[in-house]
Amino acid sequence: MSLDHATIRRIASLARIRVEEHEVDNLCQELNGILGWIEQLNEVDVSGVEPLTGAANMAMAMRDDVVTDGFYPEKILTNAPERIGDFFAVPKVVE
């Protein structure tokens, strides 16, 4: 499974990272190098093995479905690159 230029552009678009045309070739080589190295995992037989999602098979803790925190918009907005009133501001989105 080797990545071509179109796939690199597609992944970058999915990841919302702008990649300039002159960077595609180099990225392609780097990522294929890493994926090629990862191919070694094909030699491991995983039939019948259940996937492990976390660092251990731990049970998720349950809690009451109640609000425990919040109500301080000033604190939350303090790092906003741009705000309008109590809102985060972004360029106009027209659907």
């Binding site: 992944i11 970058a12 999915l14 990841a15 994926l35 995992l41 995983v46 093995v49 996937p51």
Partner: peptide
């Protein structure tokens, strides 16, 4: 680099071959 690799191994069509396989080896 890592965000792009991660996006790829989780993307439709490759999830089982990479991510699911890795989770099994992790087990």
């Amino acid at each position: 680099r890592r965000i792009l690799i991660g996006t790829y191994v989780l993307s439709a069509g490759y999830y089982d071959a990479y991510y699911l396989k890795a989770q099994k080896i992790r087990a």
